[in-house]
Design a protein around this nucleic acid. Structure first.
Lengths: 198, 198
DNA sequence: GCACCTCTCTACCACATGGTAGAGAAATGT
DNA sequence: ACATTTCTCTACCATGTGGTAGAGAGGTGC
């Protein structure tokens, strides 16, 4: 019982990092097992197939992301721009602390349709809340009026695009250091404020 | 001579699409060869190893992207916001016409460091020009003053984030149709205008 | 004590992968 | 006409993959 959750947890943990950073297809069960320090068979005992492991990793990652973001929202003033700030900061914080988490979102979008649908389902409640929230704030004139679904998609794409791929930003001469990432985040927030202020 | 370039070209073409859409590790040489309709050996004749093929695909993709963007810039009025519009539209156009192109950029950022460096080198001239351009326009007060490298990185990340991953946007309830992608692009342009106007 | 259940292991398999060896066709130069 | 180079093929190989079979260690209930 004690070892039970421990081993399963450690496998899930290592798989999250490896899948998120290197890609699902690029990481073999052997590599994950080696990282955890168990036999591959042990891994296949807990997760009957690689696909099962991928699904489990996905679910736990989405959960972790959602929880972090929701907590950030609640702990902020009710000014909509402040809340958007909080969400962006929360996502960036997680991107720095555990780059694989957002990498997984990107990764899974590339996988088969069923996975994509499950991802959608997992995010659905969070997105619905966000859209409803934006709608209300826009109606009250506290945000520039626009299609809230568009704004949500835009913020989502922008934040994940930046936070997920500091490596990709090297292509435009960027250094993926924490300090530079923070500067980039500040600039992004300024952008969002300018674009969303009423 | 006639078949020469033809076969090589067709291999490069198919590999670009497959690598960009499914990922480099997920696509085997057999699949590419099958798609082109030649034997795997023929493929290995033109590109001695898979890695050589990847490098060649990368170079041609960057070239194609750069050419498209530069052409869009030249054919526009000299208002900086119009030019940014033109770049964004050019990238989106390419994203619709050939989704694999931008997918490759994302894909390669995940590969080994040497590839990332080569990607950087390939983009270097284009980026240097863009940064210099932004700097001049900001100095003349035609754009909001900011760190041009930051702005370049931000625009790059945003545009590729959206244009590359319509599939990922399904996670936030988005439909990756052409019409919706266009609406998203319009919203993005409004964002950029609001954020960059002086 | 003993059956039972949970957990991890070694040994093995069928299959797909990237890559090699080398032969045969087809164009090309002289 | 002949030799040579260019190009594509079939056959094969070593390796790594996801997955199976089944045994053994260690605790738990009765």
């Amino acid at each position: 019982m004690s070892r039970r959750s421990s081993t399963r947890e450690r496998i899930l943990d290592a798989a999250t990092d490896l899948f998120g950073l290197r890609g699902v297809e690029a990481v073999s069960l052997d590599v994950i097992a080696g990282e955890v320090g168990v036999a591959k068979q042990t891994l296949l005992y807990w997760f009957p197939s690689k696909d099962d492991l991928v699904q489990a990793v996905l679910e736990s990652a989405v959960l972790e992301l959602s929880v972090g973001v929701e907590a950030a929202i609640r702990a902020t003033s009710d000014d909509p721009l402040d809340r958007i700030d909080a969400v962006v900061k929360a996502v960036f914080r997680q991107a720095v602390r555990r780059p694989a988490l957002l990498g997984l979102v990107r990764e899974i979008s590339r996988l088969s349709a069923p996975s994509g649908d499950r991802l959608h389902e997992a995010f659905e409640p969070l997105v619905a809340r966000a859209v409803g929230y934006l709608e209300r704030e826009m109606a009250q004139g506290r945000l520039r009026r626009a299609d809230p679904r568009l704004v949500a998609a835009l913020v989502y794409a922008t934040v994940t695009g930046i936070a997920t791929e500091p490596e990709a930003l090297r292509a435009v001469g960027w250094q993926p250091t924490t300090a530079d990432l923070r500067a980039l985040r500040s600039e992004l927030l300024a952008f969002l404020r300018a674009a969303l202020a009423p």
